[in-house]
């Protein structure tokens, strides 16, 4: 039997659901806390506690990325791969990969100083959005309402860790108070949800209390989600899109998807689909 190792930080509802699905499918899924793991990277030998493939579920991006790098270098199939995780973990790299693949994205600039940021806003106009290139769940995403508030936010960034000084500035897309998350597993769009911002909040992230509702997968959503996923590489993704006045645009591709709120509303067994995909990647 194929043995899959699930590496994780905190055992969240998603990881519990994956363990339950594995039991149902008769899959040997071994949970392994990354906190207990040591990997010798100067040897090609794989750690004895690791199975035939790895399901990467670490919630800490840097731990996720570096552990994936170490395991993949030993020839282990890891879902998602190092390359996908590296790209998805940075909003600028995702935008560039999507652009290269011809996927529509919101109008976006990158700048590195207050002066550069304000110059970008002269072209974008107000309101616009400032997003950290590395970050999730809407953390530190800020609306830029006018030049004064933009200048203040940019200046704050100058006192932060250098990654936050990369200014990723995006148009504020005119959209309904929701966005779309489409789950892609391999070459299949398996489920989609609308994410509605909670009262008093404009961010739609379900980790911030956003509400999930089933979203029928139209041919447009499917085509765009698969194209976006292909731009990153073979894997399991949450492709986020907005309904702009000019059609759908993709603003993010997520590599370690959360699905606790999506399974009940879509009726799709997302953890089962993920496990089946990882099994297909396992070395027999």
């Amino acid at each position: 039997m194929v043995a899959i190792t699930m590496v994780y930080d905190q055992l969240r509802p998603e990881e519990r659901m994956l363990l339950q699905s594995a039991e149902k499918l008769g899959v040997d899924l071994i949970p392994l806390s990354a906190s207990e793991l040591t990997v010798e990277v100067s040897s090609r030998e794989k750690p004895s506690e690791i199975g035939d493939a790895v399901l990467q579920r670490c919630v800490s991006y840097f731990r996720n990325l570096h552990l994936t790098a170490a395991l993949e270098a030993k020839g282990m199939p890891v879902v998602n791969s190092f390359s996908s995780t590296l790209t998805c973990g940075n909003k600028l790299f995702v935008t560039l990969a999507l652009m290269k693949a011809g996927v529509p994205v919101p109008k976006t600039f990158v700048a590195f100083t207050t002066k550069g940021g304000l110059k970008a806003l002269e072209q974008l106009g107000y309101p616009a959005m400032l997003k950290p290139v590395v970050g999730s769940w809407g953390r530190m995403v800020a609306p830029l309402k006018d030049a004064d508030s933009a200048k203040a936010l940019f200046e704050d960034r100058e006192y932060m860790y250098p990654i936050y000084q990369v200014l990723y500035i995006q148009e504020m897309v005119k959209r309904p108070p929701r966005d779309i998350r489409c789950f892609v597993v391999g070459d299949e769009a398996i489920a989609a949800i609308y994410r509605y911002a909670p009262p008093g909040e404009w961010r739609t992230n379900t980790a911030r209390g956003g509400r999930a509702e089933n979203c029928p997968i139209t041919s447009e959503i499917e085509e765009l989600a698969l194209k976006a996923a292909k731009a990153i590489g073979d894997g399991v993704y949450g492709v986020d899109m907005m309904e702009s006045e000019n059609g759908l645009v993709v603003h993010e591709v997520n590599h370690t998807v959360e699905f606790r709120n999506s399974v009940p509303v879509t009726g799709v067994d997302i953890p089962e689909k993920i496990l089946e995909y990882v099994i297909s990647k396992a070395k027999r």
Partner: peptide, 11 residues
């Protein structure tokens, strides 16, 4: 005490 959200946590 469980961490609620780390600086690099997410999807």
């Amino acid at each position: 005490v469980a961490a609620v959200e780390g600086e690099d946590w997410g999807e």
